[in-house]
């Protein structure tokens, strides 16, 4: 199926990343030249968390991504998986919390205490 009809420049489809938090994955379209701050602003539109309360971690390397740098600077590539962590009440950031389908089956019975 090929549809050429969508508007905008081809650059719009330059890349996407998969931002994961708990049981949710956000697919975000982005450009390698965009800064992490821009990405966080996009996330802000989808979840109600302010930019300052978000932390993004590149799963491949475990590196915390820097707001002022671009995706390309930090080697975040097309289809990359990025973990989203949020600031907790005590002002610290939570640990990476990504539930995978298999974990889920196990943790449903034991109720592993993951606060999602």
């Amino acid at each position: 199926m090929s549809q050429q009809s969508h508007s905008g420049s081809p650059d719009q489809m330059a890349m996407y990343i998969r931002v994961k938090h708990c049981k949710t994955t956000y697919f975000l379209q982005c450009d390698p030249t965009e800064t992490i701050l821009k990405i966080k602003e996009k996330l802000h539109a989808l979840i109600d968390q302010p930019v300052d309360d978000q932390r993004l971690i590149l799963m491949e390397t475990g590196r915390i991504l820097d707001d002022s740098k671009t995706l390309a600077d930090q080697k975040v590539e097309n289809d990359a998986v990025v973990a989203l962590t949020l600031r907790k009440d005590d002002n610290e950031f939570e640990d990476v919390n990504i539930v995978r389908p298999n974990d889920f089956y196990q943790s449903r019975d034991s109720d592993g205490g993951v606060n999602c």
């Binding site: 199926m1 049981k23 956000y26 697919f27 989808l46 539930v99 889920f104 089956y105």
Partner: peptide, 29 residues
Amino acid sequence: MKKEDTVKLISAEGFEFVIDKKAAMVSQT
């Protein structure tokens, strides 16, 4: 990207995928 331009697809196990409507519409269904 606005929230209205996205759609949430939910799997059998209750996992959620938030994607652009434009992308979702690759599927005719």
